[in-house]
Design a protein around this nucleic acid. Sequence first.
DNA 1: TTTTTTCTGTTGCAAAAGCAACAAATTATT
DNA 2: AATAATTTGTTGCTTTTGCAACAGAAAAAA
Lengths: 210, 210
Amino acid sequence: MNISFDIKQFVETFENSCHKVKKKSFSKNEVITNYIEKRNQLCILLDGSADLVRYDLNGNRTIIDHFSKYDVFGEVFYIVSTNNELFVEAKGKCEVLFYIYDDIKKKCKANCKFHETLTELLPELILNKVTNLNMRIELLTKRSIRDKLVGYFNLISSMYLTKSFSLPFSLTDLADYLSVDRSAMMRELKLLKDDGFIEKTGNKITLLYK
Amino acid sequence: MNISFDIKQFVETFENSCHKVKKKSFSKNEVITNYIEKRNQLCILLDGSADLVRYDLNGNRTIIDHFSKYDVFGEVFYIVSTNNELFVEAKGKCEVLFYIYDDIKKKCKANCKFHETLTELLPELILNKVTNLNMRIELLTKRSIRDKLVGYFNLISSMYLTKSFSLPFSLTDLADYLSVDRSAMMRELKLLKDDGFIEKTGNKITLLYK
DNA sequence: TTTTTTCTGTTGCAAAAGCAACAAATTATT
DNA sequence: AATAATTTGTTGCTTTTGCAACAGAAAAAA
């Protein structure tokens, strides 16, 4: 199920066919959108990477989700609560497709090809999202930093079909993704190395167990 | 968006219209299904409640997800890894609808009404799931037990539109849902009470802040 | 109703994780 | 090429969390 290709083709073909669809560019640290209930906006990240960031009432900033090419986001996926603000922030130069919908399941006009195809693609897009979210939850529910790291490495390893791989994002981002303190995570990585479970040079990891 | 009604009607109407759909009953602690890649099974919980449980290689048991009436589950939503086993276990008497699909997006026969309707309902079903998963992730990414509890209470409070509510599940289950040690959570609840943030009698909570 | 099981509430202690702070290395920017 | 910014790696200390264990309350089963 290679969904990326479908989306790419979809976007290139229908980008200008619907007036409710807009493409915009962003540079580093710019706010792409914030989540406001009933704004009815669906966004597709065409290029670059971005973070879904939460600011709570104390001003604490947490990265809740990380989006990369062809990821889909927007407040449809979220129960927007009043207790914190949700922003999507560009991590570098980004291209984003915005789509304002009245009813996400319905076409805007009888002959609007964009909506027809979007409706067809949507279940797959969302299913893909569910899989990622479940994956993350499985990691987040692990009790210790060690278990989270090992669980994450196992996933990467089985995805790439190799015991040796480069991490797809920085260690700082990994700590955010696993929702643990970075220095504590570094300490645990060192212990995993000392205990002979992994080898690590820079962000290249080799699993030595099993 | 009251999705439950749609599913209820859908199930009642088409339950017997497709030979690829089976309904089964389960009693407490029975295994409803386990997740096996490419089995292509979609399950709808018609009645009762069930848990998605992970057993890792050390035999540790963790509740990853909790399903209640009209929740949808199955390995479509999951990257099934080889490092742990995933079971869905009944928490009491359960009724489950099993649907084996070849291609989840396609009908099994030209005139199969069940599949036609399922295909229509699926995006909504899944979207509903995404919202729940995002909600849970937002809680799981909070740093402390206190933040998790308060975040959870805020969500319940804004859903029920009241500062005073009964918890929808037991404290033991809540600890599992937030993925924290139960006794540590109880301690934190006591502290929240002592600090005057909440009132608590049994599983009834009243928020005293804001 | 009685018995059994599950859930709640509590505590002491040990282990793990978070926080703060800094230097070195790496990567971007000008 | 020089400077700035970000990421990595490390450590000491403090706080939080988990673990184990137990008694009482509540709920379910016999």
